[in-house]
């Protein structure tokens, strides 16, 4: 019957789309293990290009910077985002403008925020560097952490907060001993998400890093490298970056039972 032809057509579509999605990255991953490093011929499996990364000072420096940016921005945004989420959910009757401001950093195009921050810092005469990247990353990261924690708070039993207060705990103690422990999986998931976003983020970092090479992050380093063409080292680096973000996000999603905002 005609329905069977339609089903075959569907399979064909899936095949084409998945090929389109996966062939480019597979080729990249494959080449990163090619001993010769060239797409012209397969000369044997090798991890030497990964080894080469370890001796490239620029890359190591950039990776170090990225780690600093990601760690600090994650720490800051996790605290701010969690507090925001708890405050917003206790308050409940939040105006539309408030919800918009909290939601905006997640959908605002990177380029807009990047330009706005660059002109802001420049006008204020702030000297730019890793610290400006960090505070800028906190802007969108705290929104993501907040969204993840809020999702968990939607079915939070507030009576345990009242019970804790009833038993004589101060607000701060209740927060520290009752609310935060219950929310911990969501907070960790949010932090992991923030960390990954920060590690991957390029445009805002690029605009707010200031002049010079001292505060180059890994994505900026990759951008600089790939502007000058294809090398086996970039293949290896790209494969590593890809693996790290996929693993971190899968972990975050596992922790938070499949609830990822904006995904």
């Amino acid at each position: 019957m005609a329905e069977r032809h339609i089903f075959r057509l569907m399979l064909l579509i899936l095949g084409v789309v998945f090929a389109f999605l996966y062939i480019p990255i597979s080729v990249l991953v494959g080449l990163s293990f090619n001993d010769g490093g060239l797409p012209t011929a397969w000369t044997g499996f090798s991890t030497r290009w990964y080894g080469a990364l370890l001796t490239n000072d620029d890359i190591l420096k950039a990776a170090g910077n990225t780690l600093v940016v990601a760690l600090f921005s994650t720490a800051l945004s996790t605290v701010l985002g969690t507090l925001l989420a708890i405050g917003v959910e206790i308050r409940r009757r939040n105006g539309k403008w408030l919800e918009t401001i909290i939601f905006a950093p997640m959908i605002i195009p990177d380029i807009v925020l990047a330009i706005a921050l660059l002109s802001f810092f420049s006008l204020l005469g702030v000297k730019m560097g890793l610290h400006t990247i960090i505070v800028s990353h906190v802007v969108f990261n705290l929104a993501f952490v907040c969204a993840v924690v809020r999702a968990r708070l939607k079915n939070f039993d507030w009576s345990i907060v009242e019970a804790s207060g009833d038993l004589g705990a101060s607000t701060f103690t209740t927060l520290r001993r009752v609310v935060v422990p219950v929310l911990m999986p969501a907070i960790i998931a949010g932090a992991l998400l923030a960390f990954t976003l920060s590690v991957d983020e390029f445009i805002i970092a690029f605009f707010t890093a200031g002049a010079g090479r001292s505060s180059i992050t890994l994505p900026m380093q990759i951008f600089a490298m790939i502007r000058f063409g294809v090398t086996p080292e970039i293949n290896a680096l790209a494969t590593l970056v890809m693996a790290v973000s996929v693993v971190a996000l899968a972990l975050s999603q596992r922790l938070n039972k499949g609830e990822l905002p904006g995904q």
Partner: peptide, 29 residues
């Protein structure tokens, strides 16, 4: 699996096409 690539770095995904399309790239080969 349709969404998985979305999670990897934007630069890397773009770079993958340089690997495919460049003058010594896979498609030319």
């Amino acid at each position: 699996f349709a969404v998985l690539p979305f999670w990897s770095n934007y630069l890397v995904r773009t770079y993958a096409w340089i690997v495919l399309l460049n003058r010594e790239g896979l498609i030319v080969n």
